[in-house]
Amino acid sequence: MDVLGNYKSVISARSTDKDITKKSQDGGIITTLFAYALEEGIIDGAIVAGPGDEPWKPEPVVATTKAELLAAAGTRYTISPNLNLIKEATRSYGLDRVGIVGTPCQMQAVRKAQLYPIGMRDVDDKIALALGIFCMENLSYQALEAIVEDHCNQKMESVKKMDIGKGKFTVYTERGAVSQMPLKLLSKYVQPGCNVCLDYVANLADISSGSVGSPDGWSTVFVRSMKGNAVWDGAIAADLFETKPMDQVKPGLDLVTKLATEKITKNQKNVDARKTFGLKADGTAKGLRNPYETP
C-alpha cells in the first residue's frame, strides 16, 4: 500500500476560529472538527488528551464541551492512552456517538476494536469520528522530561509550547525563552514500540492531520473515509476552515511522502531485523515476536 494510505482528498487548512488557533499546535484542525461535530450532534463526546496531574503529562478525558476541547488543544509529545476510555465512554458516560483522536497506532487499535471486538463490547458501531494525527515516534513522560530539563535546560512547568519542526525540538517558555535540541539526539529517547510502527499519517483514521507539508500555522489534512468526508464537507460548508490546495503550498505533499517513506522504510527494516535477532544452538537465527504475522 501507498505510504500515505487511502484518501479521498488532501488539502492544507487552518481553523477560522481564533479561540482555537490561539491554543492549537498548528491549524487547529482536530479541535475545530470535534467542536463542529459536537455542535452538530455528530458526536456526543470526544476522547481527547486532557490536562494531567503533572505538567505536560496528558490524561485521556471525554470532552463534551468546547471548553473541555480547548483545555486539551495542542500537542503534548508523550503518551496519552486514549483507547483506555473507549468502552468507558459508551458505558459509564453513555455516549452513543464517540469521537476519538489518536496517533496512527491508536487508529489501528480503534479499527481492531471495531473489526475484532474481543473485549470491546458494544463499541464497534459507536465510533462516530476517529481523527488521526501524524506521528513519527512518541516519547515516555520521563524521556520528555529529560529532553526539556536536561537537553533544553527548562523546567517542565515553565514551558508554554513544545514543537518539532525543521530538524529541531523547540521549547518556548512562559517568559519568552526559546531552547532547542537537534532532533538527531531524540532517537535514543523514542519508546521502543514506535520502532516497529508502519504508519506515519494515520492511514486508518476518518480524517488525519499534521503540520508536515503545510506552512507555519497551517495543517495538512487527509480526508479518508465516507464518514470523514461527510464531516469535512459539513465543516467546510460552515466556513470553519480556510483552505489552500496542497499543490500551492510549501513544502507540500512531497515532504509528507518523503517522511512517510523514511519512517516506514526504517521501521520495516526493524521489523525484518527482529526475525534474525538472536542465535540458535544450530547456528541459525532466532527471532523475536512479529505482531504482523502471528499473535
Binding site: 485521556p60 508523550t78 503518551i79 496519552s80 492512552p81 486514549n82 483507547l83 483506555n84 476510555l85 473507549i86 468502552k87 468507558e88 489518536g102 496517533t103 497506532c105 491508536q106 487499535a109 481492531k112 476494536a113 474481543i118 473485549g119 470491546m120 512518541n138 515516555s140 513522560y141 520521563q142 519508546q191 521502543p192 514500540g193 514506535c194 520502532n195 516497529v196 510502527c197 523475536l288 515476536r289 505482531p291
Partner: peptide, 24 residues
Amino acid sequence: QGLCMGCGTCAGTCPVRAITMEYG
C-alpha cells in the same frame, strides 16, 4: 518484546478493570 506503544487498549478492554495505565 519491545512492542508496546501505550495506546491504552488493554486497560480499556479489561472486563474487571485490573489494568491501569501508568506513565503510558
